[in-house]
Design a protein around this nucleic acid. Structure first.
Length: 784
DNA sequence: TGGAAGCGGGG
DNA sequence: GTGTACGCTTCCA
């Protein structure tokens, strides 16, 4: 049996930890005797009197009087020192925030903000997604956990389901108005699409109306009872939409009662207890480095697969017309989206499971946690084992102070601009983790007189004192080495997937320790540690650059732990020679790795470059404009420029494209559709202090009786004339109806040129020589 | 120049 | 839920 998910429930004012266990089937069980607690530390001579004060604290909440349950004295460590700590035990987790303020007036407190169910996993040393023997007994209608033992088995089996909905809408989907037209499902057993207009295919099930379709889906979910639900953006779209729509349609269903929505600013989440919802959109953003995170793009770039496309307008039309072909096109698209989500889930899900097993927190939480947060839970688990009290998160003022003090990060070499051929890319393997271990960098090892271990920043770290963080990191690195060896020696496909995910999980964690110590919200924050790590890193990359230059190699660019070297030809021997030479000078634990060869590329400025490999795969960094607040003409022109240069046709050819576009703009030949800029109103109109074009346009639309407000996406075009841009902006309909002419200067100077200049700046072009001019005779010489 | 505001994915 | 939250870029004032 393994733990799939956990939380807690209250019965008769007492908290019970609820565990969802899986063993072929799912079982809900409870743990009775876990008590919420926090730590208090004060001068040892005052312990008894402080305890008496704490035990007397009473507070009223909703006519109920709250008191702490009990206090005990325990031996603990705090910041490396042995202390007698007061363990303050509470009756219920919600008593902690209610009594906390008053206790804080009496003495310093710790570990007051660790959620109850998470605390349970830490203290009881239960790893989710890991096989255990749970000894259960029945008490009335409840299953109670008596005890448990871990079984060392690496394989668990989970039952996934992915789904996706399609909505019929004219603008932004609104659950009060716009119906769901199809729901697609993909599992290991079947792929299915539910809809309610007549269309025939073996995977489609047609019901009478939307209400029955939604019910059918909810029934399916309940009957299939998946362990994991994969969606793409289900946190903020599919789940809330189904919920709202079901409410509107007056559907009642047990699944709806179980759904929970957690709105936390940017981090919304949707969940059904017992079914772990993994939203692949935020995960893809976290794990993959792409310049666009549409399902289509992730599917293509991560799995190398394509799926059928459909335009929103097309979908509306197909649904309205209701022809077999049209409906089939929507259904096919819907099905393939669900399949894509499932396949991406199968590639990423195992990683989340491994992270969950290593960090010791629920898969659901892990899939939504930033990696620095995972590091923190890992450290907290270890701290508990070592009887160490966890440091507090910074309070508001301290957080602000930490945020405002910056330190020098990695070294970034100013790139050699222009087009280059034969580029070898090298990376230091785990540069920062290696430094942390080698130099024993930890908030508690800072400052000693006994060791010769001072960072270029001037901070000394003791090598004789045990460093909590480097110890844990060392174990992670060692585990990863072992797993990579196992990976090499197995040919079993399932084992390979597991090892692959395990080593990926360990790599993510190892690489997050540096960021963790420099992250202002960390419990184990240390600016000295983080800045020292970075300073040692700079030293290593400088040495590697020096070696390249001594070998006569052309270092084109470098950033923190990577180097881009011009080889002059496709000289793999030279590349190897360089790598080996650097490695012979590095300490054992560190290694420069050859990452790849690119036949062509260019560097514009720090963090901005593009490369093309032998298979014509283009990778870019910091260049592309793919956001909706850029007009199509800017995106199109930029893409053409990028391709032209990387294909080796020369920047002159790219410049010609730009000049031609500006000419077409001036002559009014660009269709209005390519000039639309989309901007969302994020607040009520009255709240705006800075009035942008979209705000004015929205006001006009409102005056005309159109429904716009917070959340509306305003599309506008800029008209020619003088004055502020915002006073010349109109929504597309009005712009067309009035027969306005667009402002070519605006589109040239604020859209096309900034987009292409990101690239062409590196080739010596200025805005001026990319604009079409009737009077100017262009020659190559003008450009340089 | 600082700070306000928008972006992202989904249909 | 013992948790109040991103990281960057662009433009207005």
């Amino acid at each position: 049996m393994f733990l799939l998910d956990s939380d807690y429930k209250t019965f008769n004012d007492k908290p019970y930890v609820r565990l969802i266990l899986k063993n072929g089937t799912k079982k809900e069980v409870f743990y009775k005797d876990f008590e919420p607690y926090i730590w208090a530390v004060c001068d040892e001579r005052e312990i008894d009197s402080k305890i008496r004060v704490i035990e007397d604290i009473t507070t009223e909440v909703q006519n109920k009087s709250l008191k702490v349950k009990a206090c005990t004295i325990e031996d603990r460590y705090l910041y490396g020192n042995k202390v007698k700590a007061i363990k303050i035990i509470f009756n219920h987790p919600s008593d902690v925030p209610n009594l906390r303020k008053e206790i804080e007036n009496v003495t310093d407190i710790y570990e007051y903000d660790i959620p109850f169910a998470r605390r349970f996993l830490i203290d009881k040393d239960i790893l989710p997604a890991t096989e255990y023997n749970f000894n259960l007994s029945e008490e009335g209608e409840f299953s109670i956990v008596n005890d448990f033992q871990i079984i060392n088995k690496k394989k668990i089996s989970v039952r996934p389901l992915a789904f996706d909905i399609e909505v019929y809408c004219k603008s932004k989907p609104d659950a009060q108005r716009d119906p769901i037209i199809m729901i697609g499902i993909s599992t290991n057993d079947l792929d299915r699409v539910f809809t309610y207009k007549k269309v025939t295919a073996d995977y489609i099930e047609v019901v009478d109306n939307e209400t029955l379709m939604v019910k059918k889906f909810l029934d399916f979910l309940q009957d299939y009872n998946p362990d994991i639900i994969y969606t793409y953006n289900g946190d903020t779209f599919d789940f809330p939409y189904i919920y709202e729509r079901a409410k509107k349609l007056k559907i009642s269903h047990p699944i709806l009662n179980d759904m929970r929505f957690d709105k936390r600013g940017i981090n919304d989440s949707s969940k059904i207890p017992g079914m772990v919802h993994i939203d692949l959109y935020p995960l893809s953003r976290k794990l993959l480095s792409l310049n666009k995170y549409t399902l289509e793009n992730v599917y293509l770039n991560f799995l190398g697969k394509e799926k059928s496309k459909i335009y929103l307008l097309e979908m509306d039309k197909f649904w309205e017309e209701g022809t077999q072909d049209g409906l089939l096109a929507i259904a096919q698209y819907n099905k393939e989206d669900a399949i894509a989500a499932k396949e991406i889930g199968e590639a990423i899900g195992p990683l989340e499971i491994e992270l969950s097993r290593i960090v010791g927190q629920n898969i659901f939480d892990i899939s939504r946690m930033a990696s620095s947060n995972m590091v923190e839970y890992l450290l907290m688990k270890r701290a508990f084992e070592e009887k160490t009290i966890v440091p507090n998160k910074p309070k508001g003022s301290e957080y602000l102070e930490r945020s405002s003090t910056s330190y020098e990060g990695g070294f970034v070499l100013e790139p050699k601009k222009g087009l280059r051929e034969h580029i070898a890319v090298f990376d230091f393997r785990s540069l920062y983790p290696s430094i942390i271990i080698a130099h024993n960098i930890d908030p508690n090892t800072i400052g000693c007189d006994c060791c010769d271990n001072t960072s270029p920043e001037g901070v000394n770290f003791c090598l004789n004192k045990k460093g909590f963080i480097p110890e844990i990191l060392k174990e992670i690195i060692q585990r990863r080495v072992e797993i990579k060896n196992k990976l090499k020696s197995t040919s079993d496909k399932t084992e390979k997937t597991i090892y692959q995910s395990q080593q990926w999980a360990l790599k993510i964690l190892a690489n997050s320790f540096y960021g963790y110590m420099g992250y202002p919200r960390s419990r184990w924050y240390s600016k000295e540690a983080a800045s020292s790590i970075a300073s040692w890193g700079r030293e290593y990359i400088h040495k590697a650059i020096k070696i390249a230059e001594d070998m006569g190699l052309n270092v084109l660019y470098g950033d923190t732990d990577s180097l881009f070297v011009g080889l002059g030809s496709e000289d793999m021997e030279k590349s190897k020679e360089y790598r080996d030479k650097v490695n012979s000078t590095l300490p054992d634990f560190m290694e420069l790795e050859f990452q790849g060869y690119y036949r062509r590329g260019f560097f514009v400025s720090k963090k901005r470059y593009a490369l093309i490999d032998k298979e014509n795969n283009i990778s870019t960094k910091g260049l592309e404009v793919v956001r909706r607040d850029w007009a199509e003409i800017a995106k199109k022109t930029q893409e053409a420029v990028l391709k032209t240069i990387l294909e080796g046709k020369g920047p002159e050819k790219a410049a010609e494209i730009v000049i031609k576009t500006t000419e077409e703009l001036i002559e009014g030949r660009i269709p209005v559709e390519d000039l639309v800029i989309y901007t969302q109103l994020t607040m009520p109109l009255a709240s705006y202090k800075q009035i942008g074009p979209h705000v004015i346009v929205a006001k006009h639309m409102l005056e005309r009786g159109e429904v716009v407000g917070a959340g509306s996406i305003i599309s506008f075009v800029v008209r020619n004339g003088d004055g502020m841009v915002r006073d010349r902006s109109y929504d597309v309909e009005e712009f067309k109806k009035a027969g306005y002419k667009y402002d070519s200067d605006y589109y040239i100077d604020n859209q096309v040129l900034p987009a292409v200049m990101r690239i062409l700046k590196g080739f010596g072009y200025t805005e001026e020589n990319l604009k079409f001019s009737k009077h100017k005779q262009m020659t190559l010489g003008d450009f340089f």
